[in-house]
Design a protein around this nucleic acid. Structure first.
Lengths: 121, 121
DNA sequence: GTAAGACCTAACATCAATGTCAGGTTCAAG
DNA sequence: CTTGAACCTGACATTGATGTTAGGTCTTAC
């Protein structure tokens, strides 16, 4: 598929998709005329990339991580070396703390929302 | 307490604490000489602010939200108006989705980490 | 009073992903 | 062939919290 369709199907801008390619996160074949041609699996990959960005990983780390991920198609995946494992473990722990903080914030919002919905107090 | 101690106790830089004040998130008395003097409750408030930033709220929205939060000291809290409730509900839902995405990303990392720890495959 | 450390304001820098624009090329349908 | 939509590259702009620096003032212990 071409970039416009991928953008539409993932909700990610064309600008960002080109950026992902530039960062080595997302490969694309080219038509004879030079336009990008993505495989269907690109949709899942882009969504995964977005999730990792949302989790606070930077593109360089995502680029290192992606080849080690087991894809839906179960393709051969590389094994992370010790250094990468250490970094990913740190990220995992950070994400864990982040989830805890988000739950706290969600509870705070719920509290304020609930207080506003209750009949006059 | 003065700004240095608050920074030390919260892990937030002095720069950020001044920024919070500028954004209307954090009030401080002033000594006769013009230096900031924070109440003990500022520690909790700063931590709360950091959590809300981590949850993706912008300072303007946090500024609207804070007066409606029930503090530990149970001070009188304002009631959010309908517009604010709508905004906060949207934020809450966004945070919900974010938590889901983070869990997905954490699982992905765990998977890669585990694969690397397992004896040769 | 004085010296050192903590604080003040103001301004500019940074980061990383994304937006936007300009000027040109490719594709597909008529 | 032509035309309009979709695509290309490259460059510059934006965002918002935070870092950094400079030059000056306050506080506190001696």
């Amino acid at each position: 598929m071409r970039i416009g369709e991928l953008a539409r199907r993932t909700g990610v801008s064309e600008r960002s998709l080109r950026y992902y390619e530039q960062q080595g996160l997302l490969a694309a074949d080219r038509t004879p005329g030079g336009q990008r041609d993505y495989p269907d699996a690109a949709v899942d990959r882009v969504i995964r990339i977005q999730e990792l960005f949302a989790a606070g990983l930077h593109s360089r780390k995502i680029a290192e991580l992606l080849p080690c991920m087991r894809d839906a198609d179960g393709g051969p995946s590389e094994i992370a070396d010790a250094k990468l494992v250490a970094e990913l473990t740190a990220e995992r722990d950070r994400i864990d703390r982040m989830i805890g903080d988000l739950i706290t914030s969600r509870d705070v919002l719920d509290d304020v929302i609930t207080a506003a919905s209750e009949p006059g107090d």
